[in-house]
Amino acid sequence: MIPRPFEYHAPSALPDVIALLDKYGDEAKLLAGGHSLLPMMKLRFAGPAHVIDLRKVASLKGIALEGGEIRIGAMTTENELIFSALVAEHVPLLVEAARQIADPQVRYKGTIGGDISHGDPGNDHPAVMLALDAAFVLAGAGGERVVQAADFFLGTFETAMAPGEVMTQIRIPVPGPGTGAAYAKLKRKTGDYATAAAAVVLRMKDGTCAAARIGLTNVGPTALNAHDAAQALLGTAVDEAAIAQAAAKAMAICEPAADLRGDEEYKTAMAGQMVERALRLALSRVK
């Protein structure tokens, strides 16, 4: 339960972070909230020679409404999201999801940027980001670029982030009128990753579904973008038949790994159930 030795760096400006990343390459790991990285280091599953702590980089903090987007600094913690009036007003889905992540103490430290960057299919934000059609700002030696959530998650612990890049900001388009959203997560207990979970954002116009996005947690090598399932809702009243169809299409793309939470069959079925649950909830919330 003791990490291997490493050297610690705590720069206070982003360019210094990037310079250190360049210098140490593979040997370095960024440290955000530390609640995925440090447990892995304690178990000696990870053993970086250099740890670059982002805690002093003030520019990575903060939540703002800008250009029709909620812009969240990568170092914003889960509890900051939960306690933010701005987030509650414009993207309540994020509050609902963050409340279901880990436990209170973990949420004081864990960051949205770390949760997304880690590339763990068990993490909850990735699916939520897919449903919200979020984009991520990545900064590296060559400057900044913006990557859509839909293009970001490539595999387990594998993302579109290039070596030497830092995620600086998460940009979420403020959902328009007629939108309802929900995150439904099945877990064994507080502090557990999802057996299966679904994030849903629905836009209804004149009683029919005008837009829909669905993200799935922990039922594949990455968070899954259930595109076909969402498409199946378009033009429907999101009635029970449409919901069942969407769930079936979501289940069709699941490739979960069996573990003590359940076998493939159960997890796939639960992905369907969570899609149904989230859709009903989202529909009830359409304003």
């Binding site: 339960m1 705590a10 440290l31 440090l38 740890v51 430290k109």
Partner: peptide, 11 residues
Amino acid sequence: SVKACTVLTVQ
């Protein structure tokens, strides 16, 4: 509130 087992002293 933090878990002191998951925080480095240097932090």
